[in-house]
Write a protein that binds this DNA or RNA. Structure first.
Length: 422
RNA sequence: GGAGAAAUGGCAGAGUGGUCGAAUGCACUGGUCUUGAAAACCAGCGUACCGCAAGGUACCGGGGGUUCGAAUCCCUCUUUCUCCGCCA
């Protein structure tokens, strides 16, 4: 959520910024500013009436104590009109509040100045490309064939017990999952992130805190009986741990990580794009989350990018980094870098990580603040990134490290897997 | 799942209808004293919103109600604790 002060004071730059998303905010912002003015006026009236009522009530109290019953009862009469006024004004203020909140929820984050205008993924910029694409002297297999050949993943069995998009990993496939999770967590810890194991279901307030709600409830699995949501990413529980927190000073840099399964309903396209591990309803991911002073946000983002680059390099995967254009940047993010690994077998780039800064968009909703040098509370910046998402990494490892007879496991994983080849 | 108790400021803990945004203690901040520190003493010390300001409004787990007036009474939800049951 954007801050109302920002909309008031920097109306034009907000509108201009949102144009990079091809989002025309002018009418929403105009009505917001108008409602905000009404709201402040009504609120002023309401508080004046409340103040009078409070004053009279105090007087009545004193009159009763002095035994002046008649005068007290007379004073009570005065409150009747004021009470009605108060009730009416309260209703108007609340109604305006509600309208403003729903308007605010419609506004996406303003893109960072580095973000280019654009409509969709075709307008994304490639900012870096590293490593060599694998060369094969045979026809490389897609990962689903490899997985089948070596009994690593059983998609049909998953369909039987749950449904499409819920694969079962087994044997070396299951061990590879576990190895990657351990490797990613250990690397994150080395980089200073504290490991957490959060709940895999969250309440409604948490969904609002990180921006999944309202609007995107369709992407989450919902447990109606208990009013809980399955997490679509560890970002939700990890960031919401800091919901409503006021940090005592500006000497903070919170770095947290956690492994969780992620659940996405994502009823979407079918066919080649979603074949195998490319798109699942349940997958594993290690997430890194940071809560930073606004001045440190940019540096933190760069550190996170370096961290993800390090992971991919250690796994021997060639990759490219994209800076998403306005239209492809998520609703809550100010800037997002996607990491993609090229799959020769599928002849496509697979998104394996997404690293974003949210500036104050999440912390406004979360009410996550710190005391600045002037002893005033100020909103923190939040950031997060996948480090990394497993399925596509597994797909990329199987496809890009395949040999005629099997698959070579990157050396950094040997101590976790206990085997060097599949 | 059943029965009971409780939820107050950073912590502890008063307050059961009327100047209560809330006593007191601890912690914390500033000052006096001291060569320095401790102790002692003095002062300050919640959050948010509106307002140029003076000031005002709201908040005693959440929501609703009674009342001129609610931390205090009523309803409801949530959470915690104790006991019982069930269980990895």
């Amino acid at each position: 959520m954007l801050e109302i002060q920002r909309i008031r004071n920097e109306k034009q730059s907000v509108i201009e910024g949102l144009k990079k998303r091809h989002f025309d905010a002018s009418s929403i912002i105009d009505s917001l500013i108008q409602k905000d003015e009404e709201w402040r006026a009504k609120k002023g009236e309401l508080e004046a009436v409340s103040s009078q009522l409070n004053q009279i009530s105090k007087e009545i109290g004193m009159l009763f104590q002095q035994g002046k019953q008649a005068e007290a009862n007379e004073a009570k009469q005065q409150t009747i009109v004021l009470k009605t006024q108060e009730t009416n004004l309260k209703g108007e203020v609340d109604a305006l509040d509600e309208v403003m909140t729903s308007l605010m929820y419609q506004l996406p984050n303003v893109p960072n100045e580095l973000v280019k205008a654009g409509r969709n993924e075709n307008d994304n910029e490639t900012v870096e490309e590293n490593g060599q694409p694998p060369k094969f002297d045979f026809t490389p297999l897609p990962h689903w064939d490899i997985a089948d050949k070596f009994r690593l993943i059983d998609f049909e069995l998953g369909v039987k017990i749950t449904g499409a998009g819920f694969p079962i990993y087994r044997g070396k496939g299951a061990k590879l999952q576990r190895a990657l999770i351990s490797f990613f967590l250990d690397e994150a810890e080395k980089a200073g992130y504290e490991e957490h194991t959060p709940p895999h279901v969250v309440n409604e307030a948490s969904g609002f805190g990180t921006g999944q709600l309202p609007d995107k409830e369709g992407q989450m699995y919902y447990i109606a009986e208990d009013d809980l949501y399955l997490i679509p990413t560890a970002e939700v529980p990890l960031t919401n741990m800091y919901r409503g927190v006021l940090l005592p000073d500006e000497n903070f840099s919170i770095k947290i990580t956690g492994y969780t399964p992620c659940f996405r309903r994502e009823a979407g396209s079918y066919g080649k794009d979603v074949r195998g591990l490319n798109r699942l309803h349940q997958f594993d991911k290690v997430e890194i989350v940071r809560i930073e002073h606004p001045d440190n946000s940019e540096a933190a983002l760069n550190e996170m990018i370096d961290h993800v680059k390090g992971l991919l390099e250690k796994l021997g995967l060639q990759y490219r980094i994209l800076r998403l254009c306005g239209g492809d940047t998520g609703f809550a993010a100010a800037m997002t870098y996607d990491f993609e690994v090229y799959s020769a077998a599928q002849d496509k780039w697979l998104e394996v990580s997404s690293v974003s800064r949210f500036d104050t968009f999440q912390s406004t909703r979360l009410k996550l603040r710190f005391k600045n040098v002037d002893k005033k509370s100020q909103l923190c910046h939040t950031l997060n990134g996948s480090a990394l998402a497993l399925p596509r990494i597994v797909a990329a490892l199987l496809e890009n490290h395949q040999t005629k007879d099997g698959v070579n496991i990157p050396e950094v994983l040997h101590k976790y897997t206990g085997f060097k080849t599949i």
